[in-house]
Simulated scan of single mutants.
Amino acid sequence: MKTELIITTYNNPKALNLVFCALQDQSRMPDRIAIADDGSGPETKAVLEKYQSYLPLRHVWHPDTGFGKNEILNKTIASSDADLLIFIDGDCLASAGFIERHIELAKPNAFSTGSVVRMNAQTSQNLTEEDITSKRVFDAQWLRQNGNIKGLSDSLKAGKASQSVSRILDRLSPVKITWSGGNASTSRSQLIAVNGFDETMRYGGEDKELGSRLLNAGVKGQFLRYSAPLLHIDHPRGYVDPEIVKTNRAKIEETRKMRRRWADHGLDRHISA
């Protein structure tokens, strides 16, 4: 089974540098790492060049015309030759077993979805490569001391529980399963079957709409909530539009009610016949 990690990014080279720094310590590397780049400038390209010799990178880029995350994701999926695709955002740090856990859980007709521990603004601003290479950023005690653990759930996500206990907690989690675009995986063939991401949708739940279509198509969702979480680097979200979020929620509900499986404006636009 050929695997590819797809990382979305847009003009956040500092965070992307730290993401790559964490990926170098994976217990199992993917065959390829694709950067789905929604129109970043030369600073992002420079970060890729820094890690080109250490990581199996490819760069999928299109011009910046506004929020086009779903479109660049579809272009990246279309150009991939992997069987299993794993998705994270370019502001999320993966601990050593992250990729291995997604590969371990991969099944036909299933997708895996995980969660994040959200680091606060101060920790995110002060984060260094040395924090990552020393692995202290993944230590629950360090996270707590820096004000990033908000309760029992965060403690468990940050590794306070053993892997065997974490896997049991994944199965028992009462949270509704949906596709979390910053931490998810499934086969490329499953994404082709539902026509990938809906490119008419802008920021605000657009990943959940894909998850609803996968579930409608009979693809089973499974959790990695505690056994493969990510650390999320805080950043401003000036691009959030409450009206778009409201519209997206209505579309997600419609997708669920209508049992819609296919995105009319999706992946097929980028796959050659």
Rank of each mutant, 00 (worst) to 15 (best):
E49K: 15
I35K: 06
S95V: 00
W61T: 02
E100M: 01
L73V: 09
K45F: 10
V60C: 14
L48Y: 06
L48W: 08
G39Q: 11
P63D: 12
L57D: 11
I35W: 08
G68H: 10
L85G: 01
A34K: 02
R101C: 07
I77F: 06
G66Q: 08
E49N: 14
L84G: 00
D64S: 08
T76S: 03
G66S: 06
P56I: 08
Y51M: 07
P42Y: 03
P42E: 12
F98D: 00
G41N: 15
E43R: 11
D83P: 03
F67T: 00
E43G: 05
A46M: 11
P42K: 06
G41I: 03
Y54I: 05
A96C: 08
W61R: 03
S79E: 09
D81H: 08
S95L: 10
G90Y: 09
K50E: 14
R101P: 04
Y54N: 13
A94K: 02
I99A: 00
V47P: 10
E71A: 07
L57I: 10
R101Q: 15
S80F: 05
D37C: 10
T65H: 12
N70L: 04
P63M: 01
L48I: 05
G90T: 09
R101N: 10
R32K: 15
I99D: 02
R58M: 01
G90A: 04
D89M: 05
E71I: 07
Y54Q: 15
C92E: 15
L85T: 01
D81M: 02
A82C: 07
S40N: 13
R32E: 15
I72F: 06
S40F: 14
Y54K: 14
S40H: 13
G90N: 09
S53M: 12
T44E: 05
I33T: 09
G90L: 10
A36C: 14
F67Y: 15
S79M: 05
P56Y: 12
G90R: 07
A78I: 04
A82W: 07
H59G: 02
G68V: 06
K45T: 10
L73E: 04
D81W: 00
S80C: 04
R101G: 00
D89I: 08
I86T: 05
W61Y: 11
K45V: 07
C92M: 15
G68M: 12
E71K: 12
I86W: 04
H62P: 01
D64Q: 06
F87Y: 13
I77D: 02
L84W: 04
A78H: 03
R32S: 14
E100P: 04
L84Q: 05
Q52S: 12
L48N: 04
F87S: 04
I88P: 12
L57F: 11
G97S: 14
R58L: 01
R101K: 15
K75W: 05
D38F: 10
C92W: 03
V47W: 08
Y51V: 05
W61V: 02
G41F: 13
A36E: 11
